[in-house]
């Protein structure tokens, strides 16, 4: 298991868990469909790698890196 922030570009990962440290963020992740077992992929990052583009359920989200580190994933 590792935080998604240390994942590589364009590789599918499986969501293992979402840390509940920040309840609001965890809630929004769930509502947007980032639930356990779901595949997730990093598509791109902003210049300073503070914002990530991730693909989930056939659409793209842009997420700040510090929030993304709440998502723990493992290789498919």
């Amino acid at each position: 298991m590792m935080p998604l922030t240390s994942g590589k570009l364009n590789i599918s990962y499986k969501i293992k868990s979402i840390s509940g440290e920040n309840e609001k963020v965890a809630r929004r992740f769930l509502e947007l469909g980032l639930i356990k077992g779901q595949a997730i992929k990093i598509l791109n990052t902003s210049i300073l790698k503070k914002v990530f583009l991730v693909e989930i359920r056939g659409y793209i989200l842009s997420i700040k890196a510090d929030l993304l580190s709440y998502i723990l994933v493992e290789k498919m």
Partner: peptide, 20 residues
């Protein structure tokens, strides 16, 4: 502004706060 410290673990996308 752009210059920022590299992660000590040398992973490509991490945000310096990786828990490796």
């Amino acid at each position: 502004l752009i210059k920022h410290k590299k992660c000590p673990h040398n992973c490509s996308n991490c945000h310096r706060n990786c828990k490796k």
